[in-house]
């Protein structure tokens, strides 16, 4: 039985993989020398990590059967806090030493804020039994409000070069954001597959009552998941801050629904219990290929937005056909 399930999930990733290969071949033929080029791959690997990390933040909450609609607002708020710390603490002509420590302090503060936001989300969801959609919708509105009041809607920009390096430089040809994304993805995969926390995360999504009765502290486990989700959005906000060289309330608002879409495309079950990092990575690469390909073809980004939606529906249709084949 479990063997069979494993096969199905392999097959699901396999479907995505085939679609990915077909798309890459199509774009390579339509855009000879442009799509399959180092430049394009580099620009893709600079764009994909922030959305990828945000998607991981979304996915882990979906595995528990929840959702986190506050990841973008949380990322923006911690970005703004980091920006303000750097703006206010850096002297006019800082030494390298000062710059380094202030950047580190700012990043630490941003991550602490993100973790706190996660804690609040987890607390509301687990102790009051509020549905995750509503709780995080509420905190998202609140956080966006706080960000707007702090910045008065203005953009904060102009950061030290040390910070900008995080989002824009490469180490031996590999963009730093990609390195961060790979590191984060491995970390999340290890947590999900090799730790007690991962086990309770999957269990909560499959059957919350059974989990409770098996002696797991469901409240604590839920809070942990949302803290991790908050932290991940904090990491994404560091990359966003450095890539945009600015912070503002309302950045990346189109990412929110996209992260849900990619999670599900990658095989995460919106009802909880299932979801793998490898699926998410495949999903994000797939969508990035569509965006970059259409972009090179001179098509509007809105066409790729539409295709993302249509692709998810098509993949769900394929999964339905497959499920029926397996059960009958």
């Amino acid at each position: 039985m479990s063997d069979n399930k494993f096969k199905i999930s392999m097959n699901e990733n396999f479907t995505l993989f085939i679609i990915l290969i077909l798309l890459v071949i199509t774009f390579s033929i339509m855009l000879p020398g442009q799509f399959f080029s180092l430049g394009n791959f580099q620009s893709m690997t600079f764009q994909l990590p922030e959305l990828g990390i945000l998607t991981l933040a979304m996915m882990i909450t979906m595995i528990t059967g929840g959702i986190n609609l506050s990841i973008i607002a949380s990322a923006n708020l911690s970005g703004i806090i980091m920006a303000l710390i750097m703006k206010n603490l850096l002297p006019a002509t800082p030494t390298n030493f000062e710059t380094f420590w202030i950047i580190l302090l700012a990043i630490a503060a941003g991550l602490v804020i993100s973790a706190l936001i996660g804690l609040v989300n987890g607390f509301i969801i687990s102790f009051f039994d509020v549905s995750a959609i509503l709780a995080t919708l509420g905190t998202s509105t609140l956080l966006e409000g706080i960000a707007l009041v702090i910045t008065k809607g203005y953009v904060i920009s102009g950061f030290p070069r040390g910070l900008l390096a995080i989002g824009n430089e490469s180490i031996i040809g590999i963009p730093i954001p990609l390195i961060i994304f790979i590191g984060v993805a491995i970390l999340v995969a290890v947590i999900l597959n090799r730790s007690k926390m991962g086990l309770s995360t999957y269990m909560m999504g499959s059957n919350i009552k059974a989990t409770k009765f098996s002696g797991i502290n469901v409240e604590k486990a839920t809070i942990k998941v949302y803290i991790l989700s908050g932290l991940l959005s904090g990491v994404a906000s560091i990359i966003m801050l450095s890539r945009f060289n600015s912070a503002k309330a309302g950045y990346g608002s189109s990412y929110l629904l996209a992260t849900v879409l990619i999670s599900v495309l990658g095989g995460t079950n919106p009802n909880g219990g299932f979801g793998k990092v490898s699926g998410v990575v495949l999903g994000i690469v797939l969508l990035q290929v569509i965006s970059s390909g259409l972009n090179l073809l001179g098509m509007s980004q809105f066409l790729s937005m539409a295709l993302w939606g249509i692709l998810l529906l098509a993949v769900e249709g394929l999964r339905l056909i497959k499920r029926n084949k397996f059960t009958f």
Partner: peptide, 19 residues
């Protein structure tokens, strides 16, 4: 789940419209 379907159709309807 309807939330997933309607997020997809939001993307599809709006994306195609603006395209």
């Amino acid at each position: 789940p309807s939330i997933i379907v309607t997020i997809s159709t939001l993307n599809a309807f709006y994306g195609l419209l603006i395209f």
